[in-house]
Design a protein around this nucleic acid. Structure first.
Lengths: 305, 305
DNA sequence: ACAAAAGTGTTAAACTTACACCCATGC
DNA sequence: GCATGGGTGTAAGTTTAACACTTTTGT
């Protein structure tokens, strides 16, 4: 029961209301699609291929930023919510359907798009890489997986009387077979009085469209934070059946640190169920058991680890 | 060094690009401003007045939703980022300057505003209530603090073969001296396959403008989550000097549960510094020491508790 | 004295960390 | 045999939760 009754007066107001009298931005949804992908071919018998984090980018076939790489995304349409825009564009551009989608930032800085006032809602999307082989692409765009490398190049703390700045320089490097693109993004966390603020600036940019280098850096930071906080999100990068070591690898890749296997397994135990399946053998070492998510644990609101 | 060189061809493209050819939404920033406020007057000598969580609302003087209460906020302007919009509008409408501001959601559901396609970016704002007494207001709007009461009225879990829904009914009640407004908001967390989604719906609404009842509920949920996660955010609700019990009260009000004093103090110890000041005496009990934030701990990136 | 709030100390339980160890496999 | 990944057990260290207890104040 929504009990706001629209009066005759209000009806008249709405009839005369001209929304086009005000300046309006265009609105887009941009998706940072991540997956865990196997790196180069098997280095030697018995050693598994190294895995890395991948992000799905689109080579722009048209202006602006022709031939640069940007995130998949597109303009919001009038009859849909922004989540629907994200879902629709992701499917249209990359054929990725039903991915985990979570908003992580709004990008509205003046001048970020040469076409004019365009505000972007950025979404984190996590998929199982095996499931989504990219389509050939067309003139207008061509999708491709890039391996990600994000490193802190420098970190400085500058404390003054009643304020402080912490600046961090992130070097973002994305590569696929024949292409490497790179950017340098500065993060500034400033504390003035007791107020905290975080800002980003692109210092170098080679090959990215718009401010997408910054969006990717912030997407990665968001992914790390969420993983450190609860790890539940990592399951969205997994296929239906996975080994515990796969899961551990995914955590390690995102967090950028090695974990201790016995402890990791104990922590995960409540959230997975063992299946009778095994990974195909032939690898020169004991075959691993395959696990599934324990959905019961996920339904439980207290699920956090 | 941004090395994207704009070619003559791209210049021509941009010159001919007509952004107005596409449908565009209006964009607003809406702020959920929270503070801890003393409730009714001192119930008896020696007993401190009860404290409650307050939210700052605006009584709408004009259409649409005339005489309803909504969040402070307003339209984004072309030359500013959405964070600047939030800051500017907050200052204009409520004279709150320099508050902690954090985005927590995008509200873009079709039909949420009778004026047309209007997308709102919602921000959490935390202030020290003592510092911000509301201004008298004008014809167009009048700001007022409401006490908040959010309760779970019902919670249901519905598990099927390969999917599950968890629905929660939240009763939101806001009151000030002479006014009570109320709403019932349904949260649906659904798991289909391994995909999680959360949706909200307003079931009852008495006195709120637009979908602001839903925004307030989600702001409160965001505030609770953030507090449970790290507590650092609670300091933004505190004045410069505060007692440890004040801080504990704030935590208790947000989380909706009592905490054990000795444990709370131990946890907080690294993040506060004792001052020589005491709270003015005369209350019939031992006067409390006043503390300040320990800024050093805040500057430390590892600060989480 | 006493009620209310301020503040400290002690202990058991729970969780985390680190490391040592065994298993299975294919060349 | 041996390198590689799969997998288990245990003990020390740390954190958390619970509760009992002392202090200070104004009527």
């Amino acid at each position: 029961m929504i009990n706001h009754i629209i009066s005759a007066e209000e009806k008249k107001f709405l009839k005369n209301y001209d929304i086009t009298a005000y300046d309006r931005p265009s609105l887009t949804a941009d998706m940072a699609v991540f997956a865990i992908r196997s790196g180069s071919e098997q280095p030697e018998y018995r050693k598994d291929p190294e895995k890395r984090l991948g992000v799905l980018l689109i080579r722009r076939g048209g202006h602006p930023y022709k031939d640069c790489y940007g995130l998949p995304g597109g303009f919001a349409q009038k009859q849909e919510s922004i989540e629907e825009t994200a879902k629709r564009e992701l499917k249209e551009e990359t054929s990725v359907d039903n991915a985990f989608l979570e908003p992580f930032g709004i990008f509205s800085r003046k001048g970020r798009d040469p076409r004019g006032w365009i505000v972007s809602n950025a979404f984190l999307a996590l998929v199982d890489a095996e499931k989504y082989r990219v389509r050939p692409g067309s003139d207008a765009w061509e999708a491709a997986w890039f391996f990600i490398d994000l490193e802190v190049e420098e970190s400085k703390k500058h404390v003054r009387r009643d304020s402080a700045d912490i600046t961090t320089l992130y070097r973002l490097k994305l590569e696929k077979e024949d292409v490497t693109i790179s950017a340098l993004v500065k993060e500034t966390r400033s504390f003035a009085g007791h107020l905290e603020k975080t800002g980003y600036e692109i210092l170098e940019d080679e090959g990215f469209a718009f401010d997408h280098a910054e969006i990717i850096v912030r997407a990665l930071i968001a992914l790390r934070e969420r993983t450190a906080r609860s790890g539940r999100i990592v399951f969205d990068l997994m296929p239906e059946y996975f080994t515990l070591y796969n899961l551990q690898e995914a955590h390690e890749i995102i967090l950028g640190e090695k974990l201790l296997t016995p402890n990791f397994r104990r922590k995960m135990a409540p959230f997975v169920t063992e299946t009778s399946r095994q990974v195909e053998t032939g690898a020169g070492h004991r075959p691993a058991r395959l696990y599934q998510r324990n959905m019961e644990a996920f339904y439980d609101k207290s699920f956090e680890y």
